[in-house]
């Protein structure tokens, strides 16, 4: 009897998580898709003017879409090489004691609330960028640097696991053929770990695309297509975060439609991440 009860409880909780995913999906699509229907997919995604309360109204999300994409790519350019380098260091080079100290420190980096990152970017990095590189300081570049640091812990921990999972026989085989340690890492270990590293990159990409709070604080929230990394911009997420509180009617629907676009992007990334991490080397 109690066995069955426990089974039933566990099954219910498992179903609950599935149901909440279904409810969220349904809710967002229901609220957002009709507007995309009215405006049309091309003008919605390709339009450059976002004026949801003006006359005439205009719902073009291209500036935010590009803002999100540039920011995500920028964050990857900053975070992935650094993250993979740290992972290589921790898995291959660092003395055991040092790796043991670094690992919790990096996990702590992942635990810092994003508003703190935003705060640091706003008060430290933005003035620096404004002073030495020009522009308003609150920019794609500033946000990309901070976001790159924010995704590093994900990249590091998953890449490190992938590198540690490379069989030692690969390393020994390579070293015994006269390869240096660096040649072995570059020519054998990293290629063998590539599916795990790629998965870490895609998860980092998802994090960068979805980050809202820190981005609102650092990117300047300007509704324009950014032409330079030093320009202010806005993103899909920060626009929703900023406008939803006072939006109504079609404006509100348009924000949900933005959410649909975001949702589809993130879903696609997750599917790719799963496919890549399940793919066997070779």
């Amino acid at each position: 009897m109690s066995e069955r009860l426990i089974r039933a409880i566990l099954l219910t909780t498992a179903l609950l998580s599935l149901i909440s995913l279904a409810v969220i999906t349904f809710f967002i699509f229901q609220a957002g898709v009709p507007l995309i229907g009215q405006v049309g997919i091309a003008p919605f995604i390709g339009g450059t003017v976002w004026n949801p309360t003006g006359d005439p109204k205009s719902f073009g999300i291209l500036p935010m879409l590009l803002g999100s994409l540039y920011l995500t790519v920028g964050a990857l350019i900053v975070g992935v090489p650094l993250g993979v380098a740290v992972a290589v260091f921790m898995a291959e080079l660092a003395p055991r004691r040092m790796a043991q100290i670094m690992r919790p420190a990096i996990q702590l980096l992942a635990g810092i609330p994003s508003v703190i990152y935003g705060f640091v970017g706003l008060t430290l990095l933005a003035p620096f960028v404004r002073e030495y590189l020009g522009g308003p300081g609150l920019s794609v570049l500033t946000s990309a640097i901070v976001l790159g640091i924010m995704i590093m812990p994900n990249v590091i921990s998953i890449s490190e696991d992938a590198i540690r999972a490379v069989p030692n026989s690969y390393r020994e085989g390579s070293l015994a053929l006269g390869a240096t340690q660096w040649q072995t890492i570059w020519g054998v270990v990293l290629p063998a770990a590539r599916s795990g590293i790629l998965a870490s990159v895609i998860l980092g990409m998802g994090r960068a695309l979805g980050e809202t709070m820190a981005v609102i604080m650092m990117i300047g929230n300007a509704l324009q297509v950014p032409l330079s990394p030093l320009d202010s911009a806005t993103t899909l997420t920060s626009n929703i975060g900023l406008e939803l509180a006072y939006a109504s009617g079609q404006h509100r629907e348009a924000l949900f439609a933005t959410g649909v676009v975001l949702f589809v992007l993130i879903m696609a990334l997750n599917l790719i991440a799963r496919a890549v991490s399940q793919q066997q080397t070779n």
């Binding site: 085989g173 015994a176 053929l177 006269g178 290629p191």
Partner: peptide, 29 residues
């Protein structure tokens, strides 16, 4: 030294690349 004194291990240790690339790995280096 390790190219002059070459070692084959107890368990086969092919590298995760093609047959051809495995054989020329040391020469490439």
């Amino acid at each position: 030294l390790r190219r002059r004194v070459s070692m084959v291990f107890a368990l086969p240790t092919p590298l995760p690349m093609s047959i051809y690339e495995n054989v020329i790995y040391g020469l490439r280096l």
